[in-house]
């Protein structure tokens, strides 16, 4: 039987959506509590790592394809750069905080910082899952990566 025992599989089934939810919570509250883009992205990636550990790579691929993870990674960098460049066009500075500041200690505050954190979170999630796959699945000399 592929993967680990049935106990680990069932608990993984139950936990993986909640891990995703928790990662997004950390990303979205990065400007209010400790955390932010990087830890939230690591949590999101660790959900897929958990699926890979418990079930084997097919289920994890069904949830997030390898090509999709690189697309997500590029998308994160793109969001970050576009936000930075919009600052130049709107007011003249790189990374100008051009959005209204909102209420302090609520979820909509601090201008563009949450949006930047979303970009960072997507980038880190994609990158860490890709790094995990590259380190684990494609051992040097044993298995060549097949062209898609």
């Amino acid at each position: 039987m592929k993967g680990m025992t049935i106990i680990v599989k069932t608990i993984t089934k139950f936990l993986s959506p909640l891990i995703i939810l928790f990662g997004v919570y950390i990303v979205l509250h990065g400007h209010l509590t400790p955390g932010g883009g990087f830890p939230g992205g690591v949590m999101i990636a660790s959900c897929f790592i958990l699926l890979t550990l418990a079930y084997g790579k097919e289920i994890a691929y069904k949830k997030l394809k390898r090509s999709t993870s690189s697309v997500i990674e590029s998308l994160g960098v793109l969001i970050f750069l576009i936000l930075a460049l919009l600052g130049i066009f709107v007011g003249g500075y790189f990374f100008l905080n051009f959005l209204p500041l909102g209420h302090p200690l609520k979820i909509i505050s601090a201008g563009i910082i949450p949006l930047c954190y979303i970009g960072v979170g997507l980038e880190v999630a994609g990158a860490i899952f890709a790094v995990f796959l590259a380190l684990v699945l494609f051992k040097a000399g044993e298995e060549k990566e097949k062209p898609q």
Partner: peptide, 27 residues
């Protein structure tokens, strides 16, 4: 929040170490 993160990541770490101990590949 940090406590919850630590619980979940510790669980994943324990699973990874268990697979290493069992001598299987990670996938």
């Amino acid at each position: 929040d940090i406590a919850i993160v630590w619980v979940l990541l510790g669980f994943i770490g324990a699973l990874a170490l268990a697979k290493y101990l069992e001598g299987k590949g990670f996938d």
